[in-house]
């Protein structure tokens, strides 16, 4: 299982938690499991998110590997100027 930390705004959609556990070995699986387990998160995930794995932020990387001990954060989709 991987521990995924959600940003504050997602707490409600995830049943009042900001830390959830999912069975996943890469970014895509994390997102898929989150949507399955907490359907209310789908809208936010589909609007676009970033995933931070051990401090490195990924925007579009379905297959970036995640280890059980990885630190995983779901973040809003980054954009820049």
């Amino acid at each position: 299982m991987v521990k995924v930390v959600l940003w504050g705004s997602l707490k409600k959609a995830a049943g009042g938690q900001t830390e959830v556990e999912v069975e996943a070995k890469n970014v895509r699986e994390v997102l898929d499991r989150l949507k399955e387990t907490y359907p209310k998160l789908s809208a936010d995930i589909d609007r676009g998110v970033s995933v931070s794995i051990d401090g490195v932020i990924f925007r579009d990387a379905w297959f970036a590997p995640i280890k059980p001990e990885s630190e995983v954060y779901l973040l809003p989709r980054l954009a820049g100027g």
């Binding site: 940003w7 931070s52 051990d54 401090g55 490195v56 630190e71 954060y73 973040l75």
Partner: peptide, 13 residues
């Protein structure tokens, strides 16, 4: 610093 939990969550390298 390196290892600090950032204000937006992830730990800094």
């Amino acid at each position: 610093r390196e290892g600090t939990k950032s204000s937006y969550g992830p730990t800094f390298g």
